[in-house]
């Protein structure tokens, strides 16, 4: 195990960086897209509600690997070239945004409807009330579940290994198949994943407790 770290620390560090970068990018974009669809779901407009519902149901029910491979293999055949890292990040963003939409929607719905009414009564438009009154409260509620989504993102980013995305899992595969020391290679990779996810998940649990 020590020899793997000693000989391949550069690859591992690079992989860790790619994993983190991809997870952060995907979190950022899926937050935007997810919140957008969450708002679509609560606005008084049937058309937007249907669009949001369809988007969420489709991408919650198709494997991440299928979405990612679609961008890696199918999209370049008809449109533009997408490299492995980008395909993985797009796949993760779309997949996660469907889950984040659900989380944010339930957050919005758990904010007392009186808040919205009160804000409207005070002369705010729907979108102003949403933006300044409801959403800030909703986000406070959904921070722990969003944190858990980020942990899922880090774990799910291992899908990059399928599309040569140079993430941690890809480096693990490469190291395992050049050193033939399969178990120890994956042990090292596992520990590196835990270094990111474990503290995060304890912190989220702490936040959850504090919110209760």
């Amino acid at each position: 195990m020590i020899s793997i770290v000693a000989n391949h620390w550069q690859d591992l560090l690079y992989g860790l960086g790619q994993t983190l970068l991809c997870s952060i990018l995907a979190l950022f974009f899926s937050l935007i897209i997810g919140s957008l669809f969450a708002i679509f779901e609560v606005v008084p407009n049937k058309f937007l509600r249907i669009i949001a519902r369809v988007y969420i149901e489709i991408f919650r029910n198709i494997p991440l690997l299928v979405i990612t491979m679609f961008f890696y293999v199918v999209v370049p055949m008809f449109f533009v070239k997408v490299n492995g890292f980008t395909a993985g990040t797009i796949g993760l963003t779309i997949y996660t945004s469907a889950f984040i939409a659900e989380t944010v929607r339930s957050g919005i719905q758990s904010v007392d409807p009186g808040q919205m009414e009160g804000a409207r009564a005070n002369g705010m438009t729907f979108s102003q009330a949403m933006r300044y009154v409801v959403l800030p409260q909703a986000f406070k509620i959904v921070i722990p579940p969003l944190g858990n989504q980020f942990i899922n993102l880090v774990k799910n980013s291992s899908v990059l290994a399928f599309v040569a995305g140079f993430d941690l899992m890809y480096q693990g595969n490469t190291i395992a198949s050049t050193t033939f020391d399969t178990l120890n290679s994956y042990f090292v990779v596992g520990i590196l994943y835990l270094v990111i996810t474990m503290p995060l998940s304890y912190y989220m649990r702490y936040l959850e407790k504090r919110l209760d």
Binding site: I151, K155, N156, S157, S158, V159, A161, M169, G172, T182, L183, Y186, V189, G190, Y193, L194, T197, M198, S201
Partner: peptide, 16 residues
């Protein structure tokens, strides 16, 4: 277990 990627757990059961 919850904090590891499933892919890694698949490798462990198959190779480990």
């Amino acid at each position: 277990i919850r904090n590891l990627p499933l892919l890694l757990i698949i490798f462990f059961t198959y190779f480990g």
